[in-house]
Computed example of a mutant assay.
Amino acid sequence: MEGQTANPWLIMAINMTVVFAVLILLGVLMEIIHMIDPTKKKKVESAAPVAAAPVAAAPTTVATTNDEKVVAAIVGAVVAMGYSSEQIASIRPTATSAQWRFDGRLSGRN
Rank of each mutant, 00 (worst) to 15 (best):
K41V: 08
I74D: 07
I24D: 01
A89I: 09
S85D: 15
L23P: 01
A47Q: 13
I11K: 04
M81D: 09
V19I: 15
A95F: 04
A77M: 12
N7S: 11
R109V: 04
L26G: 08
S46E: 10
I11R: 04
A95L: 04
A57W: 03
Q87K: 08
V18S: 06
T65C: 05
T17E: 05
V44R: 13
K43I: 12
W9F: 10
A57T: 12
G104Q: 15
R92C: 01
V22R: 09
I24H: 03
I88Q: 09
A89C: 01
G76A: 14
Q99T: 12
R109S: 03
P38W: 05
V28A: 15
V79R: 14
A77K: 13
P54D: 15
A57L: 09
A98V: 11
I91L: 01
A77D: 06
A63D: 02
A51K: 11
M12E: 04
I33G: 07
L25P: 00
G108Y: 04
I32M: 02
S46D: 02
F102Q: 13
W100Q: 08
A63M: 03
V50W: 04
I74T: 13
V50S: 13
A80C: 02
E68N: 07
M12D: 03
T94E: 01
M16F: 10
V78S: 03
A53W: 02
M81A: 13
A58N: 07
V44T: 14
V62Q: 10
M35Q: 12
T96Y: 04
T60Y: 02
T96V: 09
V22G: 04
F20H: 06
L25G: 14
S85C: 07
F20D: 02
T39C: 01
I24K: 04
V55H: 07
F20L: 10
G76W: 01
T61Q: 03
M12F: 06
L29W: 09
A73G: 11
F102Y: 10
A47V: 14
V70I: 06
F102V: 08
L106C: 09
L29I: 09
M35C: 09
M1T: 06
I36T: 14
N66A: 14
F20Y: 06
N15E: 01
L10H: 11
V71Y: 06
A58L: 12
V22K: 10
A58G: 05
F102A: 15
A53D: 06
E31H: 05
M81N: 09
I74S: 10
S90I: 02
T65Q: 14
A21W: 08
M30N: 14
M30T: 13
P38A: 11
L10F: 12
M1N: 05
V78H: 07
N66P: 00
S84P: 00
V19M: 07
A77P: 00
M30Q: 10
Y83W: 11
